[in-house]
Nucleic acid binder design. Structure first.
Lengths: 200, 200
DNA sequence: TTTCCTTTTTGATAAAGGTCAAGAATAAAT
DNA sequence: ATTTATTCTTGACCTTTATCAAAAAGGAAA
């Protein structure tokens, strides 16, 4: 259980600093247990599809082990949208949070061990333990920050620099992802990424 | 005062649908008055600078009339980051929410009438009226959705299509913004945008 | 109005990245 | 281990966008 809250602590720390992350530690034991009780630990094989488009996504996942990614289909092309490895919280977060129909496919890149969070269980948890709202708000900050960094890179840097920044930011994850995913995540083709990689 | 809550309703409606937006209407009158009491209505001249980089941004603004934008400085270049007109809520939202040092300049494109929200007043308001937390969470969804749309366009569309989508989405605002702002917001140069515009 | 300054447009050229096609390398399956 | 299917790399060529430079247009101020 400590591992779970450690993951949350780390994500908030990245987005909103240590002082805010301490809010996780100061949660009451009841709240922590309450949260832990809505989690379901499950194992999935490589390639397993957790979500398909056109329905509201009711689950997000805390990654204990493995790697998952989500892609969106735009003009018939599969485009990388997000990836989550050990310690990450992922899935189709956009659909999950906004309760809109998903545009994404969520799929496992590696065999994984995930802690499943159901939306309705989470809502009930918020209601029962209102001090958790603050944590949720801080986790939202993480989503916003990550999106923001991506936007900044996309509008201001060349493909090469964007790729470099991405491996610097996630050196242990990027090599595990398929080339096509990483390329489209950066807004380029796989051919271009292949060339960038071979340049050094 | 009704105008203020109408703006909030509309933003939540866009991001999370009408059912969620109704949460604004179901707020108690005390909460509404409590929120209204932390707002300060101010008028500003064109070109007025509301925020400069390297400090934590303590204010966001509900726009009654006018237009403001924020830009970030990357590699010595001024890059468009966000814009907010009548009914919008804006400023350096990233710094405001995450309590990190701002990277942005927030500036008025037109003479404007703004309702100023101070961070500490807002925190106190959340504490005093916990039912407001839900509204805050729904407004976060709006930020996430808007960022998401921008990312999707940036990775999947040509400059021309990106521009077209942008004017379709904000037909009344884009023509009021400087060319260079719109161009860098789209991740292109002003020369390229000028050519795109003249093509039809 | 006239001047000054900023913003926008246009042109020529270069660089970055895309597309199409084929081959090499990996990984999965029998 | 061999076949089959994916994924990745490489090459040739084309399109889009950036860069540099200069002119035109528009606004603000005297």
């Amino acid at each position: 259980m400590e591992k779970i809250f450690d993951s949350i602590y780390k994500l908030i720390n990245i987005a909103s600093g240590q002082a805010n992350a301490e809010a996780v530690n100061s949660l009451s034991q009841e709240t922590k247990l309450g949260f832990f009780s809505i989690l379901k630990r499950k194992e999935f094989p490589k390639g397993y599809v957790l979500n398909t488009p056109d329905r509201i996504c009711d689950e997000v996942y805390i990654v204990e082990k493995g790697l998952l990614c989500n892609t969106m289909l735009i003009d018939g092309k599969e485009i990388g949208a997000g990836f989550y490895a050990e310690g990450g919280i992922g899935g189709d977060i956009i659909s999950f949070l906004t309760r809109r129909e998903s545009k994404r496919t969520v799929k496992l890149v590696e065999p994984s061990v995930l802690w499943v969070i159901n939306f309705h269980d989470l809502e009930a948890f918020y209601k029962k333990f209102p001090e958790s709202e603050r944590i949720a708000r801080l986790l939202y900050n993480y989503v916003i920050i990550i999106q923001q960094q991506r936007i900044e890179d996309l509008v201001s840097e060349s493909a090469q620099v964007r790729y470099q920044k991405l491996i610097e930011r996630f050196p242990d994850i990027i090599p595990r992802l398929p080339l096509n995913f990483v390329a489209t995540f950066l807004g380029i083709t796989q051919e271009t990424l292949s060339r960038i990689r071979s340049q050094k």
